[in-house]
């Protein structure tokens, strides 16, 4: 029995001449939250679909609980695909029972969990309605519920946060953390780095099919070496962040931004320059956000739009 829930061993997937995933290695220990990060088209969904055996890798192998994906392993997994839907004509409770049943759970197991989760998610009255009556947000909650209510050991979520409002995003975050507390392993993909930052034990950052950065969030940040200044300046007449000494990149608004610093940048000099430009409400130098690191890795730090 391995203590790894998921392993990718140098996995390559090509579609025609296009290499979607190019040499991906990763290991997800049981009971952790693992983030598969990267922009759209980086190969996240392809990787997850290989994990789910939707298609096979051209090279390398993918293991779940130490073995190849099989019918026997499927009940231990909950999977929320990127593009997801429901049976429109079915009633929600019936549908959740169905999805649970094909994972091998009986009604005695499922019904209390459907009820409990449903109430927590504010779905109470909707459980006996048809899926076609649900709003998009509601439908997404039902899909999530369908993924977890058979209590799988491994939950795979492809872009679970997309399309959720901030309240539900926080709710989902809490639920994911709670699942991990209960011993569930969670592997999820996202292109929003902030989510990964606050949630993941470990990450892999994919860019154009290649894994670029891997490890815990802290490791990735520290390995980056450089620092960043998180600043807010009010009341400036021009652009307060233009031509600052030792700043190699700016992202944010003309009021609040994350400044990428050169290795030899002097924080005091930057602060002094900013003080002359407006009221400085925040100035903090620390390891940069994943977002910034990612942008640097991707090599496309966009010039900031003039205010």
């Amino acid at each position: 029995m391995t203590d790894l829930a998921v392993q990718f061993e140098h996995v390559v997937k090509r579609f025609g001449g296009f290499t979607a995933v190019d040499g991906l290695d990763l290991a997800v220990p049981r009971g952790t939250i693992f983030g598969l990060l990267g922009p759209n088209g980086a190969g996240k969904t392809s990787s997850i679909r290989m994990l789910m055996n939707v298609f096979a890798p051209d090279e390398g192998r993918v293991l779940v609980f130490g073995e190849a994906m099989s019918e026997a392993v499927k009940p231990r997994i909950g999977y929320l695909p990127e593009e997801r839907g429901l049976y429109k004509k079915m009633r929600v409770r019936e549908m959740l029972r169905f999805f649970g049943a094909i994972k091998g759970r009986d009604r005695a197991f499922l019904d209390p969990r459907i009820q409990r989760w449903g109430e927590r998610m504010g779905l109470g009255g909707w459980l006996d309605r048809r899926a076609e009556e649900l709003s998009k947000g509601m439908a997404q909650k039902v899909q999530f519920l369908a993924t977890v209510c058979h209590e799988p050991e491994l939950v795979i979520l492809d872009e679970p946060f997309s399309g959720l409002d901030p309240v539900n995003r926080d709710f989902l975050r809490d639920v994911v953390l709670e699942l991990r507390k209960g011993g569930t392993t969670i592997l999820f993909s996202t292109h929003v780095m902030e989510q990964a930052e606050s949630l993941c034990d470990q990450i892999v950052l994919l860019y154009r099919g290649k894994p670029r950065l891997a490890g815990t969030v802290e490791e990735v940040r520290r390995r980056e070496g450089r620092e960043a200044a998180f600043v807010r300046v009010d009341g400036a007449t021009g652009d307060p962040f233009a031509d600052l000494p030792g700043v190699v990149g700016v992202s944010g608004t003309p009021y609040e931004a994350e400044l990428a610093l050169a290795p030899d940048a002097d924080g005091n000099a930057i602060l002094a320059a900013l003080l002359g430009r407006g009221r400085v409400r925040r100035f903090e130098v620390r390891t940069p956000s994943l977002h910034e690191i990612f942008k640097r890795v991707a090599g496309d730090i966009a010039p900031r739009e003039p205010a």
Partner: peptide, 17 residues
């Protein structure tokens, strides 16, 4: 076709062959 366009199929196939 409905299962395909509803994208239920991927969920189904994560449970059955």
């Amino acid at each position: 076709i409905e299962e395909k366009s509803n994208r239920v199929i991927e969920v189904l196939l994560s449970s059955v062959s």
